[in-house]
């Protein structure tokens, strides 16, 4: 049986194609303005990679922010459920998931791949990829350099503002006060980790916790979160695709 999972996220669109419960291929592309066409292109890409025609696909499942708009999907599933399923496929022993995406962050409590509780921060950009994007801009460094800069800091600056817009101003004021780029970068990373750790503690995630979503690629945030929670985190090789993977696996046990 062949099925495709599509994760129409706010920043990137992901597709995973599986055959008989095994991943064959995947793709990640920017969502841009039109998330329906991004999903269509991602779908076509995995078909092309696998050398499979549309008629051979048994099921298409959609998840992510734009899940309800993908007309050619058989079913729309929330990304909370699909992340749990995708992570379970990779690490069956996991009982907690931290997902930091482009516009929200979530913590999920799981048991054998099933969601037992979850929390989301989606009303405000603090603790999300957007927060990194804005503060990196205020620091005038590319977002990808933020992590390596942070590793070089010995005395991280303290960023206390809960609001992304005000945190941006806070970064600028730290610059004028003579803090180094490294210390401010470390402050930004600590701030996001602190914010997400509060949610993880609320769900009592204590061990076997996976860290997924685009922000999980940032190793400085991973270390800051590990320090904050006092545990080491599982990070998949491709932390962005667990939602699409879980969607593709929706029908299988």
């Amino acid at each position: 049986m062949i099925s495709v999972g599509l994760d129409a996220g706010s920043a990137t669109t992901k597709a995973v194609l599986i055959k008989d419960g095994r991943k064959i291929t995947q793709t990640i592309r920017p969502t841009a303005f039109d998330f329906i066409s991004a999903a269509e292109i991602a779908y076509q890409e995995v078909l092309d990679h696998a050398g499979i025609g549309k008629k051979d696909v048994d099921h298409v499942y959609a998840t992510g922010y734009g899940r309800n708009s993908i007309q050619f999907a058989d079913k729309a599933i929330s990304e909370i459920t699909t992340h749990a399923k995708g992570v379970y496929h990779l690490y069956p022993e996991v009982n907690g998931i931290i997902d930091i995406g482009g516009q929200d962050s979530k913590v999920i409590s799981v048991n054998d791949g099933k969601v037992t509780d979850f929390l989301m921060n989606d009303k405000c950009a603090a603790g999300t990829g957007k927060f990194l994007e804005y503060t990196a801009r205020a620091l005038e460094v590319p977002i990808d350099d933020l992590g390596s800069l942070a590793f070089d800091s010995e005395t991280p600056a303290s960023i206390t503002s809960m609001c992304t817009v005000f945190a941006e101003s806070e970064v600028i004021s730290l610059r004028t006060r003579g803090f180094t780029k490294q210390d401010i970068a470390a402050g930004i990373i600590e701030s996001i980790a602190r914010r997400v750790a509060v949610m993880a503690r609320q769900l009592e995630l204590k061990q076997n916790v996976a860290f997924v979503g685009g922000v999980a690629k940032n190793t400085a945030i991973k270390s800051a979160l590990e320090k904050e929670l006092g545990i080491s985190l599982y990070v998949p090789a491709e932390p962005q695709i667990t939602g699409a993977l879980g969607a593709a696996l929706y029908n299988s046990n």
Binding site: E79, V115, F118
Partner: peptide, 8 residues
């Protein structure tokens, strides 16, 4: 989204 996940 939350309600979807809760129902699931």
């Amino acid at each position: 989204l939350r309600v979807d996940a809760f129902m699931e």
